[in-house]
Design a protein around this nucleic acid. Sequence first.
DNA 1: TCTGGGGTCCTAGGACCC
DNA 2: TCTGGGGTCCTAGGACCC
Length: 364
Amino acid sequence: MPDEKPHPRIILHIDMDYFFAQCEERERPEIKGKPVVICVYSGRGGDSGAVSTSNYEARKLGVKAGIPIYRAKKLAPDAVFLPVNMELYRNISDEVMEILRGYCARFEQESVDEAFCELTGKVPDFDEARSLAVKIKEEIKQKTGLTCSVGIGPNKLIAKIASDYQKPDGLTVVKPEEVLKFLAPLKVTDIIGVGKKIGERLNELGVKTIGEISKLSREELIREFGQAKGTLIKQASQGIDDSQVEEREGTEQIGRITTLKENTKELGIIFDAIDRLSEDVHRKLEARRLSFRSVSFIAISTDLKTRTKSRTLASPAKDLGTIRLTARELAREFITEHPVLLRRVGVRVANLIGEKEQRTLGEF
DNA sequence: TCTGGGGTCCTAGGACCC
DNA sequence: TCTGGGGTCCTAGGACCC
């Protein structure tokens, strides 16, 4: 058996800085330097809705993603408030991803403003990777006008945490031999997949930092958080992550949610919303030439609890009528079972089937 | 005029089949 | 006779991410 060391992987993660707000700054140079707040208005009138993201000037004033718009206006009365313009962000995102893709052995877009890039084989070592990252950042800046933060590490976990380590316009490289020292002082919630709930439970167990996770055995973690999460937390704490950079195969589900004009359990109002949402979902489905095998009705009550009701069809469908009718049926059953006031409702299709598979199925 | 909208992944229980 | 046991699909819900 040859006992040479396995060649370390070199993974880059890129994260666009305060992306939506930065896109708006690019389009409207006159707002640069001011606090900028990107909002999702609920449609209930006034400032009902939440902040999607904000630039650093606004963040300094306490305006962060998720807070209600009216509170943001109190914190930053002189800020520029803009509604989300997804089409603009998608277009700019495409420009960025195009540039990045050119440098990767393998590429994985994670969201509209994040991506992984496999550099293994493209550069010989981490120092060369750093130089390449500088070049990529410059090219993105020059071609799109936007800044981003980049992390480089021996796996996706480390690369992603590294890209978050220094922002905006940051570049953090973590070599394999530095991984444990890098992770040890970080908060447990810096691990992807460890959020508020698990973070709190770990804190209760006396674990605040990633380094302190070593106090708990893999068995204890699995008992506490289940097989998958327990294993993930243990591995992550040791800097281990074997997941691969791979192109996403396409979406698993397509859904649309809306806030109702008023809280209600009246089927008439809910059906109207379902019809509009179904059309949007159907449009996206058509654009991607997909069929679906299951339909869900999503109900969010006034206490913001989310419940779903779903149905799998005997055979795949792709027409609007099936979405609308199934969602309506599910909504009717839902209201019978849970007669609560709803604040938001949604329609989702899943078990999506692409054109190729549809043809295969058609042969039988 | 509290708290938007688009996703992914995992778990658990029941149905059903062999 | 003590109701085995494994696999897969479906539904519902939770946690998390951006």
